[in-house]
Computed example of a mutant assay.
Amino acid sequence: QSGSYTYPLDGKIFNGKKDDFITSNDNELDYSHLIYKPTESKMVVISKQKVGYVERLAALSFFFLVFIIFSLVLYGLIWLIKNLDDERVGWFSINRSLMINANKILYKTRIQVSIVLSVVATLLIVGWVTYYYMNNEYRGQQTISIKDKIRKVQQNYEKQVFSKGIVEDEDAVADFVNFADVNNVDLNLYSTQGNLLMTTYPKLYNSKVIGRKMGPMAYTYLDKLKRSEYINPDEKIGDLTYAAAYAPIRNAHNKTIAYIGLPNYSNEEEYSDKIALFVSNLINIYALVFVAVGVLAVFLANQITSPLTFIQESISRTRIGQRNEPIVWRRHDE
């Protein structure tokens, strides 16, 4: 089994047929299944979570928004080609054409553009603030999590070497790797001089991707400043940035005999995945809101400018020398 779907132990619920592909739906968990049964004793089930109507509408709105942006860019290029005078091409000509066309924009259109731009500006500000908050919140949770991990690892490893101390042989390396597997972490063990003793990733050091010396800041904080731990949120291997925690290992006489390091290589990948998912969802939601606001702006602009449209139509029917009907306005406003 692989994936997040919880499968039943009894496969009869899928009703598979030999040498045939069958589809079924789990309406309770919103999953669809593709079932294939190569033999009577084997069954392969591929499951996929269904996409809701809101997600589909958001994706459609996103493509519609892209189409609008493309249309605006294309319209701008066509306008530039048509309005630029070949004999006087320059900023003056462009500015003159813009002023002429700006004066031709209807009051209704100006209201629509103002509403849309106001909402878009608000959404951008809210999106940036949300991203900034999520970034700080994730970094804070990451620091708390890695602090908790390094403290537990420090205490458990001190118990393991409490009486024997640290021995550098194959059995000790195997025990160290097993200890890291039990705690589900990656670990490095350094001497009091900052030299690497043991690691769960020997290939990185044997291939000289990482130096065998402890980080200078971590060594300074633990050895010179005598701190109980050190967290480096921006440790680097080339372009890879990850968080790492360090702590001293003490023996039965409360003497520091080594330093243990916990590099969290997967944290940046997790962070990138979360941010990518957040930005993707935000773009889809904003695209849907943008389309809804565009429709609302057209409706509001028509409602606001309806008195002007009514007066315009009434005045256009006025004829000099003829009997004209008075303009009747039943509202008590301007």
Rank of each mutant, 00 (worst) to 15 (best):
N135P: 00
Y131W: 12
G140W: 06
M134P: 01
T143K: 12
V119S: 03
M134D: 12
Q142P: 02
V126P: 00
Y132K: 10
Y131C: 02
Y132P: 00
V119M: 06
Q142M: 14
V119I: 15
Y138S: 11
K147H: 10
N136T: 07
D148R: 11
G127P: 01
N136G: 08
Y131A: 06
I146P: 04
V120H: 05
I125S: 07
R139T: 10
I150T: 03
V120N: 05
T130G: 12
W128G: 00
R139P: 01
I150V: 15
Y138D: 10
Y131H: 11
E137C: 04
I125M: 08
Q142F: 03
V126E: 05
N135T: 15
A121W: 03
L123G: 03
G140S: 05
W128F: 10
K147D: 07
Y138M: 15
S145P: 02
T122N: 04
V129N: 08
T143W: 00
N136D: 11
E137Q: 14
K149S: 10
V120C: 04
T130D: 15
Y131G: 02
N136H: 09
K147Q: 15
E137A: 13
I146V: 06
R139N: 12
L124M: 06
E137S: 15
M134V: 07
E137K: 13
G127Y: 04
I144M: 06
S145D: 10
N136F: 09
S145C: 03
I150R: 02
I150C: 03
Y132I: 05
T122L: 14
T143M: 06
V120R: 01
Y132W: 07
W128L: 08
Y132M: 06
K149G: 01
V126T: 12
G140A: 09
T130C: 08
L124K: 01
Y133M: 12
K147P: 00
I125Q: 03
D148I: 05
K149H: 07
N135W: 06
V119Y: 03
